[in-house]
Computed example of a mutant assay.
Amino acid sequence: MITLENVSKVYHTKSGDVQAVNNVDLKIEKGEIFGIIGYSGAGKSSLIRLLNGLEKPTKGTITVAGHRIDTIRGAKLRQARLEISMIFQHFNLLWSRTVRDNISFPLEIAGVKKQERLKRVNELIKLVGLEGREDAYPSQLSGGQKQRVGIARALANNPKVLLCDEATSALDPQTTDSILDLLVDINKRLGLTIVLITHEMHVVRKICNRVAVIEAGNIVEQGEVLELFRNPQQQITKRFLNQDSEPEETVEQLRAHYSDGKVLKLSFIGESTEQPLITNLIRHFDVNVNILQGKISQTQNGAYGTLFIQLIGENSVINQAIAFIEENKIGVEVIENE
């Protein structure tokens, strides 16, 4: 569905050349939700602009929904963009138009007849959950409702690809989750390929099948979301994962307050989240187990979680318990006192 081969983008400025995207290779399959995560200035926005033809690559080839986006121009590019739609962080709605008229706008541009437009708009309003708000103006809508209008408008021409540029960054956590749930529903109902640009690992974890991590214009790591949680290779990936789990101050507090025995950080992936680990530890080893805190979260490909526990007992027995945990394919990190 989407293929990038050896794609680079260099901006020529008065102060010198800026390498925004550097030799990127990506393949995104039809119907998947693919995340591209990176911090500000990493090259995310440049990459998404290359995907819809707003920018041309300095080198490399870009194919989206069967179109060579890096070479086509004019009418052919406009036609291709009917199949490549986009939603934005700040909604980009027409403030003088109602919800219905905003959604109808791309159909008007495409020359769709009025009755057909009205039918399609009503379908989309129902799809995104905006019944009863058809005649409201953007100023009368919440942030989540505005983004639902943006999504409906992006779907008006039945695109094959939906590009999401920081689509939830301006929303509160609860509204973010509702929009992400909507995107998953749309993906399943329509078989739409979704590319999601973000700096929030929570967003990637919740809805993406696969993810690429971008840093300084380079894709430094990519793969299935669950596999990245299981085995992150790059330091920047680990930073994103920490952002989505326990804060650093929590680890420091655990070091300071629990000095007896050993404090362990356990990492669960997939089926390991379903094991009765604590019961087995108590049953097989002469140790006291103190549960300090924990969290299990779901991804599109399975569950992952972290659990902090304190083991109190003979040092040799504690080491045997740690070996037992590792044998059960659960990650173990001993939180040492500094």
Rank of each mutant, 00 (worst) to 15 (best):
V7E: 10
V10R: 10
H12M: 10
K14W: 07
N22I: 12
N23M: 04
I28S: 09
E29M: 11
K30E: 15
E55S: 03
I62P: 00
A65Q: 05
A75N: 12
Q79Y: 03
A80D: 00
L82D: 12
F91V: 05
W95D: 15
R97D: 12
N102V: 07
F105D: 05
L107D: 04
E108W: 04
A110T: 06
A110G: 03
G111I: 04
L118Y: 09
L127H: 10
V128K: 07
V128S: 05
G132E: 10
E134R: 11
G143R: 09
Q145M: 11
K146L: 08
I151Y: 00
A154L: 03
L155Y: 01
L163G: 00
T168C: 03
D172A: 06
P173I: 12
P173F: 10
Q174G: 02
I179Y: 06
V184E: 14
N187L: 06
G191W: 09
V195I: 14
H199M: 09
H199W: 12
E200W: 12
H202P: 02
C208T: 06
R210H: 12
V211D: 03
V211W: 00
V213S: 03
V213D: 05
I214L: 10
A216C: 05
I219R: 03
V220D: 05
G223N: 01
V225M: 01
Q233N: 12
T237Y: 01
Q243R: 09
E249G: 00
T250I: 13
Q253N: 13
Q253E: 15
R255C: 02
A256W: 11
V263S: 02
L264V: 07
G270P: 06
E274W: 07
E274A: 13
H284V: 06
Q293K: 15
G294S: 07
S297W: 07
S297I: 14
Q298D: 10
A303V: 10
L307C: 09
F308W: 15
I312S: 08
N319E: 15
F324P: 13
I330T: 06
I330D: 11
I330R: 04
